[in-house]
Design a protein around this nucleic acid. Structure first.
Length: 561
RNA sequence: GUCCCAGUAGCUCAGGGGACAGAGCGGCUGCCUUCUAAGCAGCGGGUCGCGGGUUCGAAUCCUGCCUGGGACGCCA
């Protein structure tokens, strides 16, 4: 009962019932199996169900149906449950009591914006690290998906009682950055009419030239007079800062923010040098071997296919080395209990070696979860849009948000499970923009607010309404749908699957629109006064939950449309 | 060649051992004197990629194959 979820109370009732049968010798089991309480897809089967008799009948001499009936006989009557019945071929179905369901409307109203919260996380310190795009160019559509995924996951974990920190890892070290610095420097020289040699691996997008001319405008032409290597460093630093702030503001436009921007470079600084510390541990544990002038992490000792270089033959640490130090920092130095990384599909192959490294550091790799956000294929009608930063031919997050809008983007990205590749048709997203599921949900909220505003304008005080009058099937269905949110929050925080949220939002909106069609709220008839007050309470509860759901998804909850 | 992800309605995708396989969009037909028609009601649409296996029960688990995408760097 720690969670307070009605589902857990039912699980407890089932467990108690099974234990009675066990003591009677009907069920022969060493331990009680996991009690699975599910939501039946068919409403005729009640609000909750368990298939336990089907799974347990083998350990008894009873047929599943008989066992189900015996279990039903041993489940006590409680106020929340109106009906417990055995159902073929061996389920036990539970139906919530309508009176209890009605009363929840007042509880939702009291909970307000806290409705949906659960204590599942118990204050566990968790970091969600996501996006973490190299500051060598703007965020593009491929990253947008991970950005939305991460931000919503963090919201969900927050609601589920975790102590959440959202973090962006800024890869401000390494050879890719070097190419960026040289690119900015080359464009800088071009911008002031000097000759320049554009680096072979340079970034050719227009944004580099934009940054370069901004630097000319704001800092003058002085960098042309100093030594090239110094100029590259200084112009590059300014360029990187500008790039990072462009990234941050682009992400903000789609509602993605962070508590912390963590610099890769900082891992190599100061007396708390995280890189040195992490490497020392690996060295002490004999996980580092020298070979071909380079230093390797011997992940094969931990069952990996091959070893990976951590320090190149030129003495430079690899990205992987930084990542090892970074994860040492996350767990050991900053004390996160759990870490979730959201990586793009192209990093899929690096998950095992990262987990191996965490293990080698003496940490529990079960506390590191890497979610892979699969590829997004962007289309304009039939034409596939290729994304490549080097060629400059790509659709940026900014362009996407300008075209489709933040709410629609978020909803589209969110509605697909992270493991599925998805197609994003820009033309379709735009064309559908008024016939979109996004607006369906938002419209439900706006309608809701419209009713409440009308009631207020008529000075109706619905706080005295009697929820026991809410007996219409449409009303009860709406309350039941509302009551699923806390359970869903817990489930999503456990499975790290935010994509259930938009589906729930749809169902909630459907339930509301049904109610709206069939149950007139504010009536002109005097004899409807009492039901009007009760229904206003339900409308208020609906508005609270619709708003909360939209907020968890990082979407706007418009008051009129 | 090895590893990872996916294949479900015309399209985009949910469901991932159970009780008749779902939604949105698109198509067709109706519904605004009454709190927002960005809504509602109805119709049509599927050998759940293919073959084996496990199970009382498989879209779901195992295995083989086919198709599409990704990864196998002293890049990040």
């Amino acid at each position: 009962m720690a969670s307070g979820l009605i589902r857990d109370k039912i699980a407890q009732l089932v467990e108690d019932g099974i234990n009675v049968l066990r003591n009677e010798g009907v069920v022969k089991l060493e331990t009680t199996p996991d009690i699975m309480i599910e939501r039946p897809s068919n409403r005729d089967h009640g609000d909750f169900a368990t298939n336990l008799p089907l799974r347990l009948s083998r350990s008894t001499s009873l047929k599943p149906m008989e066992l189900a009936q015996r279990l039903v006989d041993n489940i006590p009557v409680v106020e929340e449950i109106a009906k417990v019945e055995a159902a073929s071929p061996g389920f036990v179905n539970f139906s919530l009591d309508d009176n209890w369901v009605q009363q929840q409307v007042d509880l939702v109203r009291e909970s307000g914006s806290f409705f949906g919260n659960v204590q599942f996380g118990n204050g566990t310190k968790i970091m969600v690290e996501f996006v973490s795009v190299n500051p060598t160019g703007p965020v593009h559509v491929g990253h947008a998906r991970g950005a939305v995924l991460g931000s919503v996951l963090a919201n969900i974990l927050d609601a589920a009682g975790f102590d959440v920190s959202r973090e962006y890892y800024v890869n401000d070290a390494g050879s890719q950055m070097e190419a960026f610095y040289r690119s900015v420097h080359a464009r800088y020289r071009e911008a002031i009419g000097l000759d320049s040699e554009f680096p072979e691996n340079g970034y050719r997008g227009d944004y580099i030239s934009d940054i370069a001319s901004d630097i000319v405008d704001e800092h003058g032409k002085g960098f042309a007079d100093i030594d090239d290597s110094d100029a590259i460093r200084e112009v590059g630093d300014i360029g990187r800062e500008r790039m990072v702030s462009v990234i941050a503001s682009d992400l903000e436009k789609i509602g993605v923010t962070f508590q912390n921007w963590f610099s890769e470079h900082s891992l190599y600084d100061g007396d708390q040098n995280q890189y040195d510390k992490a490497m020392q541990i690996l060295k002490d544990q004999n996980y580092l071997v020298e070979r071909e002038d380079a230093l390797w992490f011997a992940s094969t000792l931990l069952g990996e296919d091959k070893d990976n270089v951590v320090v190149r033959s030129n003495g430079e640490p690899t990205y992987f080395a930084s990542d090892i130090a970074y994860h040492y920092n996350k767990f050991a130095s900053r004390g996160f209990d759990k870490v979730v990384n959201i990586w793009g599909a192209d990093h899929q192959g690096h998950v095992p070696r990262m987990k191996a490294a965490v293990k080698a550091l003496g940490l529990n790799d079960d506390n590191l979860t890497v979610l892979i956000s699969q590829l997004v294929t962007l289309k304009r009608g039939d034409e596939v849009v290729r994304a490549s930063k080097r060629t400059g031919d790509f659709v940026t997050l900014n362009e996407l948000v300008e075209e489709v809008g933040s709410d629609a983007c978020r909803y589209f990205f969110l509605a697909r499970s992270a493991t599925s590749q998805m197609e994003f048709d820009l033309e379709l997203a735009k064309k559908e923009s008024s016939e979109n599921p996004v607006y369906y949900v938002q419209y439900a909220h706006a309608r809701n607010v419209g009713i409440l505003n009308l009631a207020r304008s008529q000075n109706i005080d619905w706080s005295v309404g009697d929820v026991a009058l809410l007996t219409d099937p449409n009303e009860l269905n709406l309350v039941r749908t509302i009551l699923r949110l806390p359970e869903l929050v817990e489930y999503m925080s456990d499975t790290l699957e935010p994509h259930h949220l938009p589906h729930y939002a749809m169902e909630l909106a459907i339930a509301f629109h049904w109610f709206y069609e069939n149950c007139r709220v504010i009536s002109a008839n005097k004899e409807d006064d009492q039901i009007t007050l009760a229904r206003l309470k339900l409308v208020e509860a609906s508005q609270i939950v619709l708003k909360r759901t939209l907020e968890l998804m990082g979407m706007n909850a418009p008051e009129r449309m």
